[in-house]
C-alpha cells in the first residue's frame, strides 16, 4: 500500500466569471495528471471553464484556535460597510 498518489485540492472557476472555488480533492501522480483528473472528475456536468490544482500538503491554513484574534477584531469596524451611512433619498443612487 505504499506509493499512494499524492492528494490534490481542486479549484474551479465556474461558468459566470467568478473566482476559482474549492470543489474537492483527488489523487494524481503529478500536477498535469491532477488537472486532467479534475477535468474528468469535477466538470462532468459542464461546471467549469478553468482549473487550479494545488498539492494538499502545500496549503497553509489558519489554526482554529486563532479564530478570535484573527477574525473578531473586524466585527467592530461597522463603518466599513455601506449600510453604516444614511444618505437621504433625494441624493439619488450612490
Amino acid at each position: 500500500m505504499k506509493n499512494e498518489w499524492p492528494l490534490w485540492e481542486i479549484f474551479i472557476r465556474g461558468q459566470h466569471g467568478m473566482s476559482h472555488r474549492h470543489v474537492g480533492s483527488l489523487h494524481a501522480p503529478d500536477a498535469e495528471m491532477a488537472i486532467k483528473n479534475a477535468r474528468d472528475v469535477y466538470t462532468r456536468r459542464n461546471e467549469g471553464v478553468s482549473i487550479w490544482v494545488v498539492e494538499a500538503r502545500h496549503i497553509a491554513a489558519t489554526a482554529p484556535g486563532e479564530k478570535g484574534p484573527l477574525f473578531e477584531p473586524s466585527e467592530s469596524k461597522v463603518y466599513r460597510h455601506p449600510t453604516f451611512f444614511d444618505i437621504p433619498d433625494e441624493v439619488g443612487h450612490m
Binding site: M1, E4, L7, G24, S25, L26, H27, V41, R44
Partner: peptide
C-alpha cells in the same frame, strides 16, 4: 465520483484512501 468525494472527506480526518 461519489465514492471519490466521500473518500476525500474521510481523508480530511487523516485516514488515507489506500488505508
Amino acid at each position: 465520483g461519489h465514492g471519490l468525494y466521500l473518500y476525500s472527506a474521510a481523508e480530511t480526518l487523516g485516514e488515507t484512501r489506500d488505508e
